[in-house]
Nucleic acid binder design. Structure first.
Lengths: 326, 326
DNA sequence: GTGAAAGCGCTAACAA
DNA sequence: TTGTTAGCGCTTTCAC
């Protein structure tokens, strides 16, 4: 177990001062070619790598960005976090994971931990509300599909347009009894625009909108049970607009247990359109969010904030993906 | 933009020395209750939070563990990384993402970056070979379903048993022309035991094993094309054992374009059995890896290594999940 | 062009 | 029981 070489070792081996070695390392100030070569040779010989922690302490920045999302184990968030990580990498930042599991306490703890780690910025998309930490810090934060406070810019897809496209698709297919699922509206979220569009569109056609609450963080079995309840309460249902693709999938499964088959008896449209979902369940008609654009936009906004610019929220367009379920 | 309080500020406000404040912070040494209270009061008033970077510099440890995997945007790796992150969190470690995208150069760069960040340990599951960095460091490393070097402990599921179960299932279903997909065997990997079991089992039944190479990191369209070639080369095919669930899915899609329908004309069995996959494609018969146990095992081994113990590799049991595709 | 010295925020010998 | 001091590895101002 050899201790890694430090700058002092390099300097000694090269026969210069620590300062000179540092300047070579950082291409700063006047240096003779001879000195540069000597130092480089010493670095190579000792296999020198700068200690980032020491540098961070001095510079007061870490090159670390925290990613606070419910979980990475979900097609939408996995694709999003992968894209965020990639975009951050390109800009020289590393991503620290913060899976809040939609637990407010865990999210608050996580936030503190990440702040303690002196992260340079934060990208959040967790669904909790009233997390104090976000307000008491002045760290650059960008949120994705979530309203944290009116100080924090939001990157969202065009949820209203998505809700409109989805509802219209079901109406065009001849559905008369369309039901919507969404999570409980206990806090403001861009997501609710999907529901607003659904309701507007239904009323415009003289139909009554009905929305069932399916909390995001429940086990699948509970979700399935709640979805089954829809069929018990409304046997006349002939269309369902789910607020995400997994709920759309569960709906199709639930429907089958009532002898209703998709798309013959029931049309179903989902939301998100992650690549994995489309691969595993290509039949699903869904509204696709521009996941990787959302990621690059969020990272770009964060970088601008880090550079001291003020930035505003961004809305990106969605697309309807035609499968056979609606 | 107020600068956060440092220990010195706390000490001054409490009217003690920096050292005393540090001792209160770390519950170290003898302290009078009065001093403790004074310091705590000052900390509370200043909203003091220790600077982890400074601490890291002194302690020479960061509480950071690097996760080097091909991508988090894949059901198996997403579930694995989420479980790893959770287990690490419980032990007080934070996870830094390193999505290598199965690019050896990127993996090597990532490794260096993570090492520069003075991570305490590394959990790797990327599929590249000959990454120098793993050999030249003496950082504790645990690998998952991958052989890095014989110094590095491997956590794997029982791949041979999985291959056996899968092949036997197809044989039991009456298949006579079973083909296997796997990625090219250009480097040693526990994964190949799946293939070995398939070949052994086929030969035992007097059948000829045939394996097609489907590299892991190609775009879906290329994979689909390669899988279609199987049907062109072997129209007699009546069973396929895929080395992962997405290839199983692609096989079913490809088969349909040849007028072969699963399971009537062709039985298909996959591998991995991630929760997301099962949710989105519940019909798939597959071999399920014990993903979360693999994660906790890997983390436990890493912690033991960090505590200076030597650890050995671990193999965990797999399970056949019955769907309707085989 | 290069070196000496101070300091980033924290911890831990050692002394008092 | 508490304070003084040095040092973790690096960067940078200032002097030469």
């Amino acid at each position: 177990m050899v201790k890694p070489a430090k700058l002092d070792d390099v300097a000694k081996l090269a026969g210069v001062s620590k300062n000179t070695a540092s300047r070579v390392l950082n291409h700063r100030g006047y240096l003779s070619q001879k000195t540069i070569d000597k130092v480089h040779a010493a670095m190579a010989e000792l296999n020198y790598r700068p200690n980032v922690i020491a540098r961070q302490l001095y510079r007061q920045q870490t090159g670390l960005v925290g990613l606070v999302f419910p979980t990475v184990n979900n097609p939408f968030f996995a694709e999003l976090e992968a894209a965020l990580e990639k975009a951050l990498y390109i800009h020289g930042f590393r991503a620290i994971m913060g899976n809040s599991e939609n637990n407010a306490k865990k999210e608050e703890q996580y936030l503190q931990l990440l702040l303690d780690h002196q992260i340079d910025g934060l990208i959040v998309g967790s669904h909790n509300t009233n997390i104090q930490g976000y307000h008491s810090t002045n760290l650059p934060i960008i949120s994705i599909e979530r309203i944290v406070s009116n100080q924090i810019p939001v990157v969202a897809s065009d949820n209203y347009q998505g809700g409109l496209l989805a509802t219209q698709r079901l109406l065009d297919a001849g559905c008369q009894h369309i039901i919507h699922t969404n999570y409980p509206q206990t806090f403001p979220s861009p997501n609710y625009d999907r529901q607003a569009a659904y309701e507007d569109q239904m009323r415009k056609h003289g139909l009554t909108p009905i929305t069932y609450s399916i909390p995001f963080d429940e086990p699948e079995s509970t979700k399935l049970q709640k979805i089954r309840q829809i069929f018990i309460d409304h046997p006349e249902i002939d269309g369902l607009f789910a607020d995400n693709d997994t709920n759309a999938r569960l709906t199709i499964t639930a429907a089958a247990t009532f002898g209703k088959h998709c798309p013959a008896d029931l049309k179903v449209i989902g939301y998100d359109g992650a690549a994995i979902t489309r691969l595993l369940f290509p039949e699903l008609t869904t509204i696709q969010q521009p996941i990787s654009e959302m990621a690059t936009t969020a990272v770009n906004l964060l970088i601008q904030r880090l550079n001291g610019h003020s930035v505003s929220s961004a809305t990106l367009p969605v697309k309807l993906i035609s499968g056979t379920t609606a």
